[in-house]
Design a protein around this nucleic acid. Structure first.
Lengths: 200, 200
DNA sequence: CGGGTCTTTGAAATAGATCAAAGGAAGTGG
DNA sequence: CCACTTCCTTTGATCTATTTCAAAGACCCG
């Protein structure tokens, strides 16, 4: 199943018939308030599961971030699979547990961190997404942000203006460098990490 | 295992050896930032599982809210149980999924809702915790808050002062009534519900 | 090269935090 | 049974981080 950029393929609250695995590209998950306020609850990419937070209906909407390729597993087939391979059930629980742990951190971010701390945490998350060898002890790390500022803002519970201002401040302070909107270089990973934890 | 009021029995980040089920009383789960800021990630009560958000180490701390009684299941025994009763594994995943769905809503609350909306949502959550017959279509609902304002604040990502002010405002507006700190009567459930969804 | 979209920057407004103090409830000991 | 203390909550006044409103700049793509 190939989903073009920006196309929504899970409607929040709709009956949850399928499981998804992201094969290629990226996806954003979100919930909406009636007046349009949006909270992005996570980004998923190659290898990630989608649909664990769903019993009878989906607790979130989902939309492709760039062109995305997904595998769709109707719940019925999933059932057949877990019947045949009982380990899969365990694996799914593990996955759900991991997600749950991430959620705890995200609650703390949204409930208790300042805008600077949120952005710093976000940048650290992006670093940890990179293949490990790239950055272990590196004095600088480089990567591209695949999502627009709007998405970063809705992920961090901020406005795009605040996101932009904080990133500009980080740049001004020599903590990061920005080239052409998407390309980020973390100049001082240690300090960004410290800010993320609320240590400065 | 009986835990006295206020006693912490899970240390955030400590190795996760056990599963817990709350048998009686209540428990609060939370994460901390180094400088002491706290986010309560959930309250658990009779029947609730604890420790799903844990792989090798706990992603949260836990503390009794009043005297609480718990069953402790070392992971090894749990393993034996799931081996013997494969359905349990499925049950645990279901539980994790349910938690995950709740988390999505909580992210939206912390990331996008106003203080009024947060308190209204919190009150609605408490209503839904009551046994169903008590309030279906009831024009008023009554209950006791088992936690102090500090906990409500840390759960909603606010300060105690804001919690207090918003509750006073609700009271002034005739939406709720408060007797002696803990006892709450929801006078206009419909309107509280509307506020919770951001509709006024 | 021009129009549209996204981002950055600036100025003003505001929701909620912080600081400060008063009010209430609950327990303690005389 | 009543001061007295302590802790928690409420209320008030002020402050500030972030939002909102507004406009200018950058980037993209036909």
């Amino acid at each position: 199943m190939t989903v073009p950029d920006g196309r929504s393929f899970i409607e929040e609250g709709s009956p949850a018939h399928d499981f998804f695995v992201v094969t290629d590209g990226r996806v954003k998950l979100f919930t909406l308030l009636p007046d349009g306020r949006r909270q992005i609850t996570g980004f998923a990419e190659g290898g990630d599961f989608l649909g664990l937070a769903a019993s009878t209906s989906y607790a979130f909407g989902a939309e492709a971030l760039g062109t995305a390729v997904l595998c769709r597993f109707p719940h019925a087939s999933m059932q057949r699979l877990t019947d045949r391979f009982p380990n899969l059930e365990h694996r799914l629980r593990q996955e759900a547990s991991r997600e749950l742990s991430l959620m705890q951190a995200r609650l703390t971010l949204l409930g208790r961190k300042t805008a600077r701390e949120r952005l710093a945490t976000f940048l650290m998350e992006r670093i940890h997404l990179l293949a490990p060898p790239c950055h272990a002890n590196a004095s600088q790390v480089e990567f591209d942000l695949p999502m627009p500022r709007t998405d970063i803002a809705d992920y961090l519970g901020l406005t795009i203006e605040t996101v932009s201002r904080v990133l500009s401040a980080f740049k001004r302070e020599g903590l990061i460098n920005i080239r052409g909107i998407t390309h980020i270089t973390i100049m001082q990973p240690e300090r960004i990490s410290a800010i993320a934890e609320g240590l400065e």
